[in-house]
Design a protein around this nucleic acid. Structure first.
Lengths: 117, 117
DNA sequence: TTGAAATATTCCCATAATGGAATATGTTAC
DNA sequence: GTAACATATTCCATTATGGGAATATTTCAA
């Protein structure tokens, strides 16, 4: 077997630095392909190809506007990564002098959750 | 150019599902190679190879203990991923009914940070 | 020293990715 | 229809992967 496809999930799609740069840019709003290419010093075809991957894994959506195609960030797609990595938070918060703060934060979060449901 | 090496950074190392499973397991404490292989139904060589990658990017550390080598999670290595993905949090918290809660949490976090420094 | 256990490495194969370059497809205006 | 712009796709070369299988290496015990 080979490495899994970049289009297999968000983890693989986001492993490529250029694609992370694209997502960072889309944080500021919709962008056309040429805008993306221009802002990040990519050639148009590569921008288009990266955007295709991001679209396939649901990290962006597209809509046509005239002869342009506007790509928009779909942040939800990153949640799986966030959720996974979050379970490791305690491994860098665990120094003793910060543990108290950390526990505090957890508690605050829990209250906030109760409030939501 | 080809895809960047799995050993180039945490993002790439963690794109492989088996390696995420290994990290999840190491959450519970040090494990020998055979423990890892056994717990996750991997063959010994593959476990060893995945652990090598994780070690190369600093996500685990090793120490010898008799004829075993005990691998230990180094959670700090995941912080870059956490930090990156964190900047997208607002994109799934942004529904109006939760925005207030979100801002609240941000504020709480800030106070907590002031307290730390 | 010899053997057994634990781990690491090597070789092979099928698969796939990235950037570059060229080209195809689409859309709009005239 | 045609020119011009925007975007997508295809082909290429290089590089690397992950699993399987076999083997090498290290470490300990007797």
């Amino acid at each position: 077997m080979a490495r899994s496809a970049t289009t297999s999930d968000a983890f693989n799609a986001v492993a490529e630095p250029q694609r992370r740069r694209i997502l960072n840019l889309l944080t500021q709003g919709e962008r056309s392909v040429n805008d993306v290419a221009g802002s990040l010093c990519l050639k148009q075809p590569q921008a288009s190809k990266h955007l295709r991957v991001l679209k396939e894994v649901g990290l962006v959506s597209v809509r046509g506007s005239g002869q342009q195609r506007l790509y928009k960030l779909n942040g939800e797609g990153l949640k799986p990564i966030h959720d996974w990595v979050k379970t490791f938070e305690r491994f860098w918060n665990e120094s003793f002098d910060r543990l108290a703060d950390y526990l505090n934060e957890l508690q605050t979060r829990e209250q906030s959750n109760e409030h939501k449901e």
